[in-house]
């Protein structure tokens, strides 16, 4: 992208170029834009291979490239809490050849990181939602708590003991952390001590062993422990019940109003991405997400296939950005 600017700058300053060559160059560029894509498209993933975000990108690639007629390459740019990858796409030219597979965490980062500048997620051009996943509230199987009502009472009582309440999360400033803070607010702010972990595996061990009292995490990673009887699920935060956990009530059913929180991964373009590119990419993505094997791969993992319009993703991004801004400020959650 950078290179193109240099080349065109060079062309402008060179008097030897004939008008004819100049015109043909311009027309071919114009043509290239309407015929997007005319060369391989890069999906930037802000995390190393293997995680949920990486999976979301890779699972649709085969079908999307069939639809678009050009290869799609996944470019993993890990680091910086996902921000390095986001920043690359933020700086990219709006030609549609560098798109971001963005985790919903981009709506939390700008609030929690205060000295390291984080990309503003509202500046991206939304293309479409790739997948979503609800969170589930769990307690150890050994806990006396059987449902959400008992949970509230239990937490309030235990908070007053010298032992206190410990809740785990898969990272300070992660979705699992801020979601529990939101719930704590709804419960009337009982004293709850946050114990952050690095990823789900470590916190799962300590929850099962009873060292932490409660945890929110993605249904896809937690459901095996629930099925095996090592953890007890109290509610899920998605709008509908999760196919993998049909017996677990939604937050609304459990009695928590307006508690619809999802972890989502969307396809985003750089700012000012032309509408025709958005449209074409969105329809290719939707075709891929309707494919039976793609759906099966996503659902088997415990997530839900996304889809829908670019505006849907835009709305999702906006509401979460606003929600977390409020929660982070109210509870003074900061990451640096």
């Amino acid at each position: 992208m950078h290179a193109k600017r240099i080349v065109s700058g060079f062309a402008k300053s060179t008097a030897f170029l004939t008008l004819a060559i100049g015109l043909s160059a311009i027309s071919s560029m114009a043509h290239a834009q309407s015929a997007w894509p005319t060369k391989p498209v890069t999906f930037v993933v802000g995390y190393p291979p293997g995680g949920q975000t990486d999976f979301a990108g890779r699972v649709v690639v085969a079908n999307m490239q069939k639809e678009l007629g050009q290869p799609i390459v996944i470019d993993n740019r890990g680091g910086g809490g996902g921000n390095i990858g986001s920043d690359i796409v933020m700086q990219a030219a709006p030609d549609g050849y560098k798109l971001l597979v963005g985790n919903g965490v981009i709506t939390i980062n700008p609030h929690t990181y205060r000295s390291t500048p984080m990309v503003d997620p509202l500046k991206f051009t939304p293309i479409g939602t790739l997948l979503t996943s609800g969170l589930v509230l769990v307690v150890p199987a050994t806990s006396p708590v059987k449902d959400y009502k008992q949970f509230v009472q239990y937490i309030k009582d235990k908070a007053k003991t010298p032992e206190g309440v410990n809740y785990g999360s898969s990272g300070a400033g992660s979705l699992t952390h801020v979601t529990m803070e939101l719930l704590r607010e709804r419960m009337g702010k009982p004293e709850m001590n946050h114990v952050p972990y690095k990823g789900t595996a470590a916190v799962a061990v300590d929850l099962i062993a009873g060292r932490v009292d409660a945890l929110f995490d993605a249904t896809s990673v937690i459901s095996p422990f629930i099925k095996s009887g090592q953890m007890r699920a109290l509610m899920v935060t998605s709008a509908q019940r999760v196919p993998a956990l049909p017996d677990v009530p939604t937050a609304a059913e459990a009695g928590v109003k307006d508690f619809e929180i999802i972890s989502f991964i969307g396809l985003y373009g750089p700012p000012k991405l032309p509408a025709d590119v958005v449209k074409k990419a969105n329809s290719a993505m939707n075709v891929a997400l309707k494919d039976a094997t793609v759906r099966k791969n996503i659902i088997d993992r415990g997530d839900e296939p996304g889809g829908g319009s670019a505006e849907d993703l835009g709305k999702l991004t906006q509401t979460h950005f606003k929600l977390w801004g409020g929660i982070v400020k109210a509870n003074d959650i900061r990451v640096d």
Binding site: H2, A3, K4, I6, V7, T42, V73, I74, N76
Partner: peptide, 14 residues
């Protein structure tokens, strides 16, 4: 291995 490394100089690659 299909690593994502730019192979050719910018003036050829574009």
């Amino acid at each position: 291995l299909r690593l994502q490394i730019p192979v050719w100089p910018f003036f050829i690659a574009e």
